Simulated scan of single mutants.
Amino acid sequence: MPRPAAVFHSLFDDRMDGMASDFHKPALFEGSQFEGFQGGDDPATINRVAHETATALLSRVRSDPHPEVIGRLLTFTDDHGIDAIAELWARASAHSLPGSLWRIYLLRVLIRQDPQNAGYVFERGAEAIPSIDPVIAGAETPTGPKEITELADRILRGLFEGDFAVALERAAAFCHIMAHGCATLADDAEFGSPEQATVLTTRALRFETIGDELHQSAALWRHDALD
């Protein structure tokens, strides 16, 4: 079984320095880029492009959810890198369509870069969390690398061919479970590695924040109020 410190460090922090400048190649990113991603220079232009591209993409695919098209969307970041998505949507409001799409794509990349450790953190959270979030997330148990990767794909696929709000709720539940897993690992590390415990606690709060944002976006979508 992986050590708590090794688990979290591998999942978030063992990344290439900086981002690849060539958007046609897959790009890894540092843990700091999980907290925020800086896009272009003109906020108004970025906001307009973000909303136009997100709306056009979602409307087009959901009107005719062809399996091959959805398959390409699922694997887009595998072929082109997360920075290609970030250029469009990373700076959009959390409670907007592009902001929601960005968060779910980012979660999928985090999982696929280290599915073994992602599954471990998820399992720790699912075992301890006092809620029905594991049921909502819908991961198979036990949750190993294969199961956590399939969950990430199912959540993303649900945006394009299922109930959009349900997909957001599943992603929110996933984040809450991961937050609980990180918090549990932080407790384990508190005495032996207080610095690592602090890092884990910070990550838990960030996962919790993203989960809350996606949950609110799901409610807005149901009321036709997601920006």
Rank of each mutant, 00 (worst) to 15 (best):
P4Q: 00
A5E: 14
V7E: 07
V7W: 06
H9N: 09
S10T: 10
S10R: 15
L11E: 09
L11D: 04
F12G: 04
D13G: 04
D14F: 05
R15I: 00
M16Q: 15
D17Y: 09
D17P: 09
G18Q: 11
S21Y: 02
S21Q: 14
S21V: 11
F23S: 14
K25A: 07
K25T: 12
A27K: 10
E30S: 08
G31F: 00
F34E: 09
H51A: 09
T53L: 13
L57M: 15
V61C: 00
E68M: 12
V69L: 10
L74P: 01
T75A: 12
T75K: 10
T77Q: 13
D78P: 03
D79M: 05
H80L: 11
H80P: 03
G81H: 00
I82F: 06
A84T: 11
A86L: 01
A86E: 00
E87S: 14
E87D: 13
L88H: 03
W89G: 06
W89I: 12
R91D: 10
H95M: 08
S96K: 01
S96Y: 01
L101R: 02
W102E: 04
W102C: 03
I104M: 05
I104Q: 02
Y105H: 05
Y105G: 00
L106R: 01
R108M: 03
R108I: 00
I111P: 07
I111C: 00
Q113E: 07
D114V: 07
D114L: 09
D114A: 15
P115R: 08
Q116I: 08
G119Y: 11
F122N: 08
G125K: 05
A128I: 13
I129L: 14
P130Y: 01
P130K: 15
P134L: 04
I136D: 04
I136P: 02
I136E: 05
A139K: 05
T141G: 02
T143S: 11
G144S: 06
G144V: 03
G144E: 04
G144Y: 02
P145K: 08
A152S: 15
A152C: 13
A152R: 10
F160W: 08
G162H: 09
D163A: 13
A165C: 01
V166R: 05
A167W: 05
E169V: 07
R170Q: 15
A171K: 06
A171F: 08
A173E: 02
F174E: 02
A179C: 08
A179G: 04
H180K: 12
G181K: 04
C182D: 06
A183V: 00
A183L: 09
A183F: 01
T184I: 11
A186V: 11
D188T: 14
D188P: 00
A189M: 15
F191P: 00
F191G: 10
F191L: 09
F191W: 07
G192K: 01
S193P: 07
Q196V: 10
A197Y: 01
T198G: 06
T198V: 12
T198Q: 12
V199W: 12
L200G: 07
T202N: 07
F207L: 13
E208S: 14
I210Q: 08
D212G: 12
E213T: 15
L214A: 09
Q216M: 10
A218E: 02
A218D: 01
L220T: 08
W221V: 10
D224W: 00
